[in-house]
């Protein structure tokens, strides 16, 4: 049984069908890059896996936790998959350390001392142990995004969803975030990332999913997908036409 099973998922916004039957199975430890033009449905798919969007048809399950629209099932699902956003979404009224501690204490009822220890460990892991007491607006974009990663990791998820996590960063800050992701990948974390960083996708990912018009248009190992794109759409997307 796969870790994440996405089966025949359809999603409509009004008359606009954004996902037209998506099937992807993800094995534990896989790192999957989802690429495609904007509007191809890649962000929506990621948001569905975390229950931030409801689905109209099909099913999604993560390690046995089904995506169902009631609060109990959603919570069970979200404890298994963490999510990292393009805009970081740190809580601006809390320090970096408190950002990482909050959900542990509130959702998992972890005692404060334990949560604090975990927060320190996770901030250390993303290279920000010394920023425990800094507030989000005192951190650079890259640092904020690393705190967001630490915050997700502190919940000990078995998979992480990354929604264009470097797109809002200045170019010189992209690498420090990608380095953290790369390290997570090498430690065996299951990752699903929507990304525009093609080189990163080629170097780090085990599979690449190319989405087009709400469908999985091509899927395969990065060396095949990037070197031998089969469809004209992917060729065009990669700039290989002509």
């Amino acid at each position: 049984m796969s870790l994440i099973e996405i089966t025949e998922v359809k999603k409509r916004f009004g008359d606009n069908e954004v996902l037209k039957g998506i099937n992807i199975d993800v094995e534990p430890g896989e790192v999957i890059a989802i690429i495609g033009k904007s509007g191809s449905g890649k962000s929506t798919l990621l948001r569905c896996i975390n229950g931030l969007e409801t689905i109209d048809e099909g099913s999604i399950s993560v390690a046995g936790a089904q995506l169902l629209p009631d609060e109990l099932h959603l919570k069970a699902l979200r404890l298994k998959v963490g999510m990292i956003f393009q805009q970081f979404n740190l809580f601006p009224h809390l320090s970096a350390g408190k950002n990482v501690m909050l959900s542990q204490m509130v959702v998992k009822k972890t005692p404060k001392a334990e949560a604090e220890e975990m927060a320190k460990k996770m901030l250390e892991r993303v290279g920000l142990g010394h920023k425990f007491d800094a507030y989000p607006d005192q951190l650079s974009g890259g640092q904020q995004q690393r705190v967001a990663i630490a915050r997700a990791l502190a919940m000990e998820p078995i998979a992480l969803l990354c929604d264009e996590i470097t797109s809002a960063l200045d170019p010189e800050l992209v690498n420090e975030v990608l380095a953290v992701v790369k390290e997570l990948a090498s430690e065996g974390m299951t990752l699903l990332m929507v990304t525009h960083e093609m080189r990163f996708a080629r170097d780090v990912c085990s599979r690449v999913v190319f989405m087009h018009m709400g469908r999985v248009h091509e899927i395969g190992r990065p060396e095949d997908v990037f070197a031998n794109p089969k469809t004209p759409e992917l060729k065009q997307f990669l700039g290989m036409q002509h």
Binding site: L52, V106, V107, K108
Partner: peptide, 20 residues
Amino acid sequence: GQWEASSSLGMGYLQQMRYV
């Protein structure tokens, strides 16, 4: 994004209100 981030961390409506 504040709602989405706290949702994705597993918080319920009242917890989101109270803490975030």
